[in-house]
Computed example of a mutant assay.
Amino acid sequence: MLTVDFGRLPVGPGNRVLDLGCGGGRHAFEVLRRGADVVAFDMDAEELKGVATMFAAMEQAGEVPDEATAETVTGDALDMPFDDASFDRVIAAEVLEHIPDDMAAMREIFRVLKPGGLAAITVPSFLPERICWALDEDYHTAPGGHVRIYTLAELGAKLKATGFVIGPHHHAHGLHAPYWWIKCAVGVNNDDHPLAKAYHELLVWDIMKRPAATRIAEALLNPVIGKSVVLYVRKPA
């Protein structure tokens, strides 16, 4: 399930791409499939072990184009172990809402990106996130949880103050917002509630099968209740 639109963030052979806060590696895997060199970066060393295993499995299955490379690096988004201007592209998907000093993280993204390079920054959308916070305090107070709710204007203003040129944006995962509202309404940690389980099964079916009906529904819902907003920015040349 990708949040970033790779039509707006083109990657390919010869590009070095940082997936910052990569989590399970969903965007890193897609970058590798497209032939770019990817660095999956996260502070969770255990999760990165799974990402590295998947990289190896992709190589074994012949899914990795010639010359493309992949590596995992453990570290802190506020002090990344990379030289200035190390990457052609940076992806930071659902990361900044977890970081108290978000502008320090933005400055690090700016630092490691090459002049003229592009970044895709995704955060939870304001309305769906605000509803989740209102329904269940545990949703955002758990350790490592979300520490802020962004408006698109605030996100853009902070990135612009960091030095980025602001580009286009879009929303994603409109079908996922109701799932999280249900989860928060019944208790975010209540994975056994029948309604939450049924909706989760629907989402898994949609991800696996991608039927036309749900694709059309999500396209209509995204501008209104898309769970994520994606902003594309450029470091001036």
Rank of each mutant, 00 (worst) to 15 (best):
G163M: 03
N15V: 00
A219H: 14
V11H: 12
L127T: 12
G167F: 10
P194N: 08
L220A: 13
L32C: 12
E97P: 03
L78T: 15
G226P: 06
A68D: 06
H200K: 04
R148L: 00
A119L: 07
D37P: 02
L78V: 09
A52N: 14
L155A: 05
D37R: 06
G21Y: 01
D19W: 00
G174F: 11
L118C: 07
A70E: 06
A134V: 10
T141R: 06
A85Y: 11
H173M: 02
E67M: 11
T53P: 00
A213I: 06
V51W: 03
E108F: 03
A213L: 05
H200I: 00
K209E: 15
P13Q: 07
P65W: 08
R33E: 14
G144A: 13
C184P: 03
F29C: 06
K114N: 07
P124R: 10
H200F: 03
K197S: 04
T162Q: 12
D101K: 01
L221I: 11
V230H: 09
R8V: 02
D88Q: 04
D37M: 02
F82Y: 14
I207C: 13
V64H: 09
H169C: 01
R89H: 08
V229P: 03
P211V: 02
A85F: 10
I225P: 07
V73G: 08
H169T: 04
F87W: 04
H200S: 01
M1N: 14
P10C: 02
G226I: 00
L96V: 08
P100Y: 03
F87A: 11
C184I: 00
L135R: 06
W181L: 03
L202C: 12
D19A: 03
V224W: 14
V38D: 11
R89F: 01
V11S: 07
V11Y: 08
D84Q: 07
A196V: 12
V147R: 00
N15H: 13
R16C: 05
L220H: 14
I91L: 15
E67F: 13
C132N: 07
I225C: 12
E154K: 05
A198F: 05
I216H: 13
P65H: 10
L9N: 11
V204M: 14
V224S: 10
